[in-house]
Amino acid sequence: MTDHPASLPPSLLVVEDDPALRMLIVRALREHGYGLRAAATGAEMWAMLESAPADLIVLDIMLPGTSGIDLLRRLRRESETPVIFISARGSEEDRVLGLELGADDYLPKPFGTRELAARVGAVIRRHAGPAPVRAGGDYLFDGWRLSRARHELRGPDGTLVDLTGAEFDLLSIFLDQPQRVIARQRLIELSRMRLADSSDRSIDVLVSRLRRKLGLAGQGAPIVTVRGIGYMFTAEVARA
């Protein structure tokens, strides 16, 4: 993080009750250049955090004694240390609950070294940025609600409206900068596009899909085309 000298690697804390898996995770992340400590229980985790803070915690959600969810809840009350939680229950509820409680990412078992390292790297980069943005927090506009933690969009009547990853990213960009014209080229840069060709045309396709999903009967979607430049999101946006 910012208070570390550039020479020191980020320090990670792995909390996992299975000894062999704990050792393997530690070894895999150490090879990617991180400083590693490991704990088998919640109590050990607290003791280690007391002696020295961590830059990121990899937390198993199913621990003996205190569950990872409870640890996460308590951890969030006390600090903003980023958390990636891992779970052997690959269930949707676990993912949503963890992210809503303020975890930064979720990784279901089993996972490979590359994936683990990539997730850790992404979360650390996000928190090292000038304005760290937690995954949680909702946007409100025209009665709609975009939930970042749940990664879901709901209409004014509570209807769940699915979005593709690219649509979600694009809508998030609009909601971060409402009532401002955003150039096509900027949109392409900002969205981590999953499309094969990140062209003007693919942005146009994405915008038209978003308009279709946001357009209710008798009311157009709040995205206007600014000819020759790009797009503008016209609705008032609130954060919750």
């Binding site: 062999a20 898996l21 895999a28 690959g90 089993p110 490979g112 070294t113 590359r114």
Partner: peptide, 14 residues
Amino acid sequence: LRTPLARLQLRIDT
């Protein structure tokens, strides 16, 4: 089974 499977996958990587 997911925990031993996770071990297996990480071991393959080493």
